[in-house]
Design a protein around this nucleic acid. Structure first.
Lengths: 198, 198
DNA sequence: GTCTATAGAAAGATAGAC
DNA sequence: GTCTATCTTTCTATAGAC
């Protein structure tokens, strides 16, 4: 219960919701407070009644976008385990995700955008990445060697696949890339049984 | 011989060189023409004698940054083959690369930055990615199954690792991530012998 | 809390002198 | 080709009325 009771802080939440979407889709610099508040049917002036600055909102938005992306993306994913992990891989590397047709993951959509910022934004990004890595790690077979390394490498492949796929100009190549990551990633999960590698 | 003879287009080349560096390190919006030209010991006004617009320069810079990054990064990499590929993996996923201590690869440094642009910039990025994918593919064992898919997934892991590593706030986690990508990536190369998988 | 109005700074691009 | 000066736009942030 972060909020004492139901208040008019609905507005604040609405702004945060819109910000998570716009920032992820267009990047920090390409979203003006004017456009942002316009989407909330408000004007610039009202913004500072809810947030201290654009940067402060950005930091919160990164965290919130991650939570929302996980909530929406993991809807059909069952309990932890390799089957659920394969399903996560499929959902994350879906062309619809790269195309921004559902709640985008800020790790992939804001990677280089966040790298050019400081402080709280970077911390939020780091926190989110740790969560993804931890989730993948726990879903891998408990007794597999290199569980941590496999989890981090898998996360990098997922994020990289979507980030690159979004930048490409050729949707056929994007689809091919995402499919490749799904297939190779699935193999990385399946071959992660106890006592393999090296 | 792209240039008819040696001309004073040295200046143009100098601007391009600086742009490739600044854009990759700071992103498109965070580099002003003022700062750019300042690094070349010139002023804003001289810019338009060499390029049509900032966007046009950006497109050229993406291509040029890739060429320079490959040239500098592959200096100690021998002829194509799995050994050279392992060396490429090591050089690309080096913490010094992620920290920007040598010619940065635009694929990793500009992924989400390029995604928010159009036209020629996206085309340049796509072309560069095709080159990286092709290079990795040719270095994999010729008779291996899924050569194309492995190559693309490896590229995604490399780019993703560096892009994420650069955004993180914690250099220990960055190092761990890059090491994980190197190890798992090396395994992906070694297990790519003829007739494996599935 | 939300509005309009405005301050103040920065940016891309152009014009004309040298 | 390069300079200085300027046009024009855009943006974050603040002030004060309602």
């Amino acid at each position: 219960m972060p909020w004492p009771s139901n208040r008019k802080h609905d507005t604040r939440q609405r702004i945060l919701d819109i910000a998570a979407d716009l920032f992820a889709r267009q990047g920090y610099d390409n979203v003006s407070l004017d456009a942002l508040m316009g989407h909330a049917d408000l004007t610039r002036g009202a913004f500072y009644a809810h947030f201290d600055s654009k940067q402060a909102l950005y930091a919160e938005a990164v965290t919130y976008a991650a939570r929302r992306s996980a909530r929406d993306g993991l809807r059909h994913v069952g309990d932890p385990g390799t089957a659920a992990l394969a399903e996560l891989l499929r959902a994350y590397l879906d062309p619809a995700h790269a195309a921004g047709q559902r709640s985008p993951c800020p790790l992939a959509f804001l990677a280089t955008d966040v790298a050019n910022r400081e402080g709280e934004v970077r911390s939020a990004y780091t926190r989110v990445f740790r969560q993804l890595g931890g989730m993948i790690k726990r879903a891998l077979p408990a007794r597999s060697r290199d569980r941590e390394e496999r989890a981090l490498a898998l996360a990098a492949m997922m994020v990289g696949g979507v980030a690159i796929g979004r930048a490409l100009n050729d949707s056929r190549l994007t689809d091919t890339l995402l499919r490749a990551c799904r297939h190779v990633g699935t193999d990385l999960i399946e071959t992660a049984g106890p006592g393999r590698r090296r």
